[in-house]
């Protein structure tokens, strides 16, 4: 048994590169975000340098047009991106997974109705749904943005959960579990959730990327977290006027956003490969 696993691991060493690259791309902003709680090079909204200074010793990533330190903003932005991504995915998954499993178990009619409902909601861009939710609130806040994005993601998660659950429900081991008296709740908990998780996880990573991007877009439009929350989207928006004279102000948050989204996807892919080699599908 151990030999089998080792061989699978060696064959999968290329897949491990995916996993490691993903871990690094996610790990760096995660670390930066965590460190930003206790330490940043400068205070977030203080004008600590000249305007639009090029990256150098005093300001590793330069300063923006108000003379604020960009590295500090990037670090706080990493925190915001991760909180928004995780929060939105958590809300979207909580609603989506529940509705998806319910739909898979529902009567034919209710299932069709729920499936159609998911499809209609998915036809609206996540960003649009999020903007509508934000519009119902008095003022923009980080919490509102997270809630809005979570609600926007829920139907996407719901649809994929429904399909995955139906696939698992058709498997022999579900009949085998039922035939020895396992109740439906136990089957959902012990067989369905673990077996849809590897595939759902990859999809949730995708949604995480979507949420982070959407938050950046909301901030860019001024509907995201208000200052002093530096979000990467807000930085992009503020750097808009100085793209030619001081490109680092726009390039760096853009790169950070890109790296995080790619990283989460690579990480999820790598983890799924791990699980499927455990399943013996290596």
């Amino acid at each position: 048994m151990d030999d089998g696993v080792n061989i699978a691991a060696r064959v999968g060493s290329r897949k491990n590169i995916t996993l490691w690259l993903g871990a690094v791309l996610v790990g760096v902003p995660l670390l930066a975000g965590l460190v930003s709680f206790v330490w940043t090079p400068y205070a977030l909204s203080d004008m600590v340098g000249g305007r639009l200074e090029t990256p150098g010793w005093a300001h590793w990533a330069g300063t923006d047009r108000l003379g604020r330190d960009i590295l500090t903003q990037l670090m706080v932005g990493a925190r915001v991106a991760l909180v928004v991504g995780c929060g939105a995915v958590a809300i979207g998954a909580a609603i989506g997974v529940m509705c998806g499993i319910l739909a898979a178990f529902a009567t034919r009619f209710a299932d069709d109705a729920l499936a159609a409902f998911f499809d209609i909601l998915i036809a609206f861009p996540t960003l649009l749904i999020a903007m509508l939710v934000v519009a119902t609130r008095q003022e923009a806040s980080l919490g509102t943005a997270i809630l809005a994005l979570g609600i926007g993601l829920a139907p996407i998660v719901g649809r994929i959960t429904r399909i995955l659950t139906k696939q698992v429900l058709g498997q022999d081991y579900i009949v085998a579990a039922r035939v020895c008296g396992t109740s439906w709740p136990a089957i959902v908990l012990w067989h369905i959730v673990p077996n849809i998780l590897p595939f759902l996880g990859v999809n949730l990573a995708l949604q995480f990327g979507l949420a982070v991007m959407a938050e950046a877009s909301l901030s860019y439009l001024g509907l995201g977290a208000p200052p002093p929350n530096a979000s990467w989207g807000q930085m992009l928006q503020e750097a808009q006027g100085t793209v030619y004279s001081a490109p680092w102000g726009a390039v760096l948050p853009g790169l950070a956003l890109f790296a995080l989204v790619i990283g989460v996807n690579l990480l999820a892919d790598g983890l799924r490969d791990r699980v499927s080699s455990q399943r013996g599908e290596a």
Binding site: D172, Y173, N195
Partner: peptide
């Protein structure tokens, strides 16, 4: 009744067992 009165062994043991448990 299931389990208490009756239990079944199926044809294909690979698919009748949960691959992740």
């Amino acid at each position: 009744l299931r389990g208490n009165a009756v239990a079944t062994v199926f044809q294909e043991p690979l698919t009748a067992l949960d691959p992740l448990m």
